[in-house]
């Protein structure tokens, strides 16, 4: 009787894990199969012959690396922008008292609630009038606009968990406001900053819609739209290349996740329990 509960729990857990990880596993398996094995019925669960041919083709014959570089630049710069602005904004919202502070915070959140489809046309027109259309920078700005509100709220709740006395102590001990921020607030805020950075990076890395609308030149396309237009046409999908590309697109995220997942979960919990 005592065994039923753990067995049942394990069963449910593992079937969930399998369900979630199956597409990932299938992606990896498919990317390693030779063309001849791809559409065989019944499918082979483990490739009979393992080949890295698709990866080689992807890297040598397609502009994949260029897209990859664009995505890295896009996601990293967006992250730097969002974390920088978000930290300063959250500091202001938590530490200073001024008229309309709460309204401002609510308005910021309100922009986050709007569906991006609503914002995309005005944003596009703005980019055109700024002469930024079809540049990577326009995407960086666009991603910043939709990642910043959430980042601000996330960092705000982290910031609220840092006792104001810590900063006061640093001020009395002879630090300037910037010095107190650097020496005392920043180290305390680091988990919040890391999880915000992760969140932003992932959002920007996976973003598709803005990239599709704001950028149409192959030279500045990020991975999402680049790979899509390169491998998927109306008549044909290059499955093997697509799977290889997908694996390589996921790799940075998986690596980052593996190292920093504890920060990420603490970030998602920060709104509920201040710590």
């Amino acid at each position: 009787m005592k065994l039923v509960r753990p067995v049942l729990l394990n069963l449910i857990t593992w079937s969930l894990v399998l369900l979630i990880s199956f597409p990932l596993l299938w992606m990896i398996v498919t990317s390693l199969k030779p063309q001849t094995e791809l559409f065989r019925i019944p499918p082979t669960w483990v490739p009979e012959t393992v080949t890295f041919e698709h990866y080689w083709r992807l890297l040598s014959e397609t502009p994949f690396l260029r897209y990859f570089r664009n995505s890295v630049v896009l996601a990293s710069t967006t992250t730097v922008f969002v974390v920088g602005l978000g930290t300063l904004g959250a500091y202001s919202l938590v530490r200073f008292r001024y008229r309309g502070r709460e309204t401002l915070a609510m308005l910021v959140l309100f922009t986050y609630l709007l569906p991006s489809v609503v914002l995309i046309i005005p944003l596009y027109l703005m980019m055109v009038s700024l002469g930024l259309s079809n540049t990577l920078f326009s995407l960086i700005l666009a991603h910043t606009t939709f990642a910043l509100p959430y980042a601000l709220w996330l960092l705000r709740s982290f910031m609220e968990g840092i006792p104001v006395d810590l900063e006061n102590a640093a001020l009395v001990d002879g630090a300037s406001r910037m010095g107190a921020f650097r020496d005392v607030i920043f180290p305390q805020l680091l988990p919040g900053i890391i999880s915000t950075a992760l969140f932003t990076f992932i959002l920007s890395w996976n973003e598709y819609l803005y990239a599709l609308v704001l950028v149409n030149s192959d030279a500045v396309s990020p991975l999402t739209t680049g790979v899509m237009s390169m491998l998927i046409s109306a008549f044909n999908i290059e499955w093997s290349l697509l799977m290889a590309a997908s694996v390589m697109m996921s790799l940075p995220l998986i690596v980052v996740f593996a190292f920093l997942q504890s920060y990420l979960t603490s970030g998602f919990g920060a709104g509920g329990v201040k710590g």
């Binding site: 006395d165 810590l166 006061n168 102590a169 009395v172 001990d173 180290p187 305390q188």
Partner: peptide
């Protein structure tokens, strides 16, 4: 001046 806070306000890191 130097100040001792009620919460001590020691720098945790």
């Amino acid at each position: 001046i130097a100040m001792v806070f009620q919460s001590y306000a020691l720098y945790p890191h």
